[in-house]
């Protein structure tokens, strides 16, 4: 998929994200909009998945560890044909396949049940180990939030993955600098996250998480590099909607009717 085409897809996804959160009256726009360029590039250039065979044992795995960014996942799964518009319209409503936080039990194409932070990389270690034991070459991609790295389990997992040299495991950290209550450096600064991950034995690359060609290149670097790789993607929370950008209050708040209209104009 060309960079232009990826960018167009990302814009459509942004509209889906804002729309579904508005319809639900709840959800997490900030971290969905910061992550969406990364997801579109990942699914557009790397992920081998098939909506007609979502449980295929040889499929690539994507584990959204920051499970509140579920709208971003649902938006790309709709683009791929795993979900319908009507599914997205039911986001967060009773019985909907689009649960508040991503859930493998409810949604085809979702590989992990998140919502409690800090667990996704551990799960990815499990799927990466299984691939190696079975001699299969599928890849496991895990997305973490930057605030999420405050969870201790993340570091248990970083340490274990490099020790076991899981070269089929790839991490993308959405470094959008904002967590639930405030900016990360106000809540508890995580510092030079690249240096920290590198010191745990990982290959690390830092990129602009909204530059589509940089993202595509970094994903390919991760696939082509021996040993586990982590991409630190510097992003802007709420990217694409001016009043949500870099604004902690849109971590977990739905837009009003007026805000929806303004957002859609900007994303037209």
């Amino acid at each position: 998929m060309s960079v232009q085409s990826l960018e167009n897809t990302a814009k459509r996804c942004r509209r889906s994200i804002v729309d579904m959160i508005h319809k639900a009256g709840a959800g997490h726009p900030g971290g969905s909009l910061s992550a969406i360029d990364l997801l579109v590039a990942l699914y557009g250039t790397q992920m081998k998945v098939d909506p007609s065979n979502p449980e295929s044992p040889t499929r690539d795995r994507f584990i959204m560890s920051k499970g509140h960014a579920s709208p971003a996942v649902y938006a790309i799964l709709k683009e791929l044909g795993f979900l319908e518009q009507s599914d997205l319209d039911g986001f967060r409503s009773l019985g909907s396949v689009c649960q508040g936080h991503v859930d493998m039990k409810w949604t085809d194409g979702v590989d992990f049940s998140a919502g409690s932070l800090g667990m996704g990389l551990s799960f990815g270690i499990g799927t990466a180990f299984a691939a190696k034991m079975d001699g299969l070459d599928y890849q496991t991609w895990v997305m973490l939030g930057d605030g999420e790295t405050q969870e201790g389990q993340v570091w248990e997992a970083f340490m274990a993955a490099s020790y076991h040299n899981l070269e089929n495991l790839h991490v993308i950290i959405d470094r959008n600098r904002i967590q639930n209550d405030d900016f990360v450096n106000v809540q508890m600064e995580i510092g030079d996250i690249a240096a920290k991950v590198e010191s745990f034995g990982w290959n690390v690359k830092e990129i602009d998480g909204h530059d589509m060609s940089h993202i595509v290149e970094a994903l390919q670097w991760s696939i082509g590099t021996a040993g586990p790789c982590a991409i630190i993607a510097h992003t802007i929370k709420g990217k694409g909607v001016s009043f949500m950008e870099d604004n902690p209050s849109f971590h977990g708040k739905a837009p009003t009717d007026d805000e929806l209209q303004k957002a859609m104009e900007e994303l037209a």
Partner: peptide, 15 residues
Amino acid sequence: QNMVIVAAGLASCGK
């Protein structure tokens, strides 16, 4: 903590 979720990941792949 890692132990339990690594087990979950393995289980999701049929182990």
